[in-house]
């Protein structure tokens, strides 16, 4: 494990701050993109271009009455929204935003990411259970089942990347993509990872956990005020985080395409700025993809999600892993 330096704290602080902001920006972006897709205008009354809309939302949510259902479990009901937020914030610790720009380099960073990411489901499930509402309960159960089903293909897809690098460190994975992004070497893995990431972040077409049309709000039906606001922000943070993971594992992290072949040596400052810009740009694209898909595609049914996860994605990801491993072992050597 790398030494914790002052840089680590600065990067971590900036990253956490930007992640919180990015959630707000994503909320705004979602409303604008949705409006664009639907031939509408979108928020434009608050501040320039309606940019202050998320702030208005958050202030309003903060000052709203907080309700706990009478027969709900008050402690869990309060704790549940914290979990997804905290786990989302924890993930940024190991993600490299540029060459040498990362909070810490854990040698088992991939495992850490997978472990932390799978924790957030507890928040959703507990929220569903502690609300004492049937709609929430159904939402929570769906969340638990869905998360478990899609953790596996997600993990296998990541594993198929790890064997290229030969290291569990996220920083090494990012470094290894300087010339060849893993999406070119391992396209099937990338597709599986994207699908599983959509499922992990509970976004359409996998948003059965919320399922506004069937379950009203799913797990957060009974949440009001800032507790709901935290779920709301956590959802968007997870969108951002999952976009970052896609970028990190498959789309070259902070590297420009085939950067190793043509990019000249740059001064550390310029290189740092370029890296972070490239990383943010790619992340923004995937966030847009998330929003785009959300507003155009219908939602799966529960049994279809399960079927897709267990009978298609999981075998496919295992086969993909074995084939890559075989190729690497026998051919590349």
């Amino acid at each position: 494990m790398a030494e914790v330096t002052a840089t680590s704290y600065i990067v971590l602080g900036t990253a956490l701050f930007m992640l919180l902001n990015s959630a707000a920006i994503t909320v705004y972006a979602e409303r604008r993109v949705a409006a664009f897709i639907q031939n509408r205008v979108g928020p434009n009354r608050v501040g320039p271009l309606g940019l202050l809309q998320p702030i208005a939302d958050v202030v309003k949510l903060l000052l709203k009455e907080d309700v706990t259902p009478t027969h709900g479990n008050r402690f869990l009901h309060t704790m549940a929204p914290v979990i997804p937020v905290v786990t989302a914030l924890m993930t940024v610790a190991v993600i490299p935003f540029g060459d040498g720009i990362y909070a810490t380099d854990i040698n088992a960073g991939v495992l850490y990411l997978l472990a932390v990411a799978s924790l957030s489901v507890y928040g959703v499930t507990l929220a569903g259970w502690a609300s004492n509402s049937k709609f929430s309960l159904l939402g929570g159960l769906r969340a638990a089942a869905q998360m478990i089903s899609y953790e596996l293909p997600l993990g296998m897809a990541v594993a198929s990347v790890v064997i290229f690098v030969g290291s569990l460190s996220v920083v090494d994975i990012a470094l290894a993509q300087e010339t060849w992004w893993f999406v070119f070497l391992n396209p099937l893995g990338a597709i599986i990872f994207i699908i599983a990431a959509f499922a992990e972040s509970n976004r359409t077409p996998f948003d059965l956990v919320e399922a506004e049309q069937e379950l009203v709000g799913g797990f957060h039906t009974e949440y009001s005020s800032m507790k709901f606001g935290m779920f709301f922000l956590a959802e968007y943070m997870h969108v951002v985080i999952n976009s970052m993971l896609m970028v990190t594992f498959f789309f070259g992290s902070y590297h420009l395409p085939f950067a190793g072949l043509w990019l000249p040596e740059l001064s550390p400052l310029i290189k740092g700025i370029l890296d972070v810009t490239v990383f943010v740009g790619k992340t923004a694209f995937f966030v847009f993809l998330f929003i785009w898909v959300r507003w155009t595609i219908p939602r799966f049914k529960f049994n279809q999600v399960m079927k897709l996860g267990w009978s298609k994605l999981l075998p496919l990801s295992i086969i993909n892993f074995i084939v890559i491993a075989a190729i690497l072992y026998f051919i590349v050597g």
Partner: peptide
């Protein structure tokens, strides 16, 4: 019907 299946924008397009 399409909105109930989850695609919200479609509803707005038919409304146009």
């Amino acid at each position: 019907m399409v909105m109930d299946a989850g695609a919200i924008s479609f509803f707005i397009w038919t409304f146009k």
